[in-house]
């Protein structure tokens, strides 16, 4: 077994997704099968091979530090589920 019930719940907590019991069971079995397939990578000798995180050798893209226009606040707030006085509102944190 690649992944336990406990690990599924731990990963769900990290990913901030609440799972019910049947979902957790289904995911454990799916992930187990998928992770089992990933074992084929163990056969590849990667000693001394650099990882690729990006397909092209680009370096940092910088621009001049100059003021630019931005989106309209009213437009942006229209998408917010809840807002007050020009701020996005969320449940009490402290």
């Amino acid at each position: 077994m690649k992944i336990t019930d406990g690990e599924v719940l731990h990963v769900a907590a990290l990913a901030r997704i609440r799972l019910d019991n049947s979902e957790a069971r289904g995911l454990r079995s799916d992930l187990d099968k998928i992770l089992g397939y990933m074992d084929i990578l163990a056969a590849v000798d990667t000693t001394g091979v650099n990882p690729t995180h990006h397909p092209l050798p680009l370096v940092n893209a910088m621009r001049d530090d100059r003021e630019q226009g931005c989106q309209d606040l009213a437009d942006v707030l229209r998408n917010a589920p809840q807002h007050e006085d020009g701020y996005i509102a969320v449940p009490r944190v402290i």
């Binding site: 992944i3 690990e7 599924v8 990963v11 992930l31 990933m38 163990a42 590849v44 990667t46």
Partner: peptide, 22 residues
Amino acid sequence: MLGTYVLSAGYYDAYYRKASQV
């Protein structure tokens, strides 16, 4: 879930780093 798992502590090298090398 799969992506969170392969990046999580203890599994990063075995999955994410290995995959990036391949």
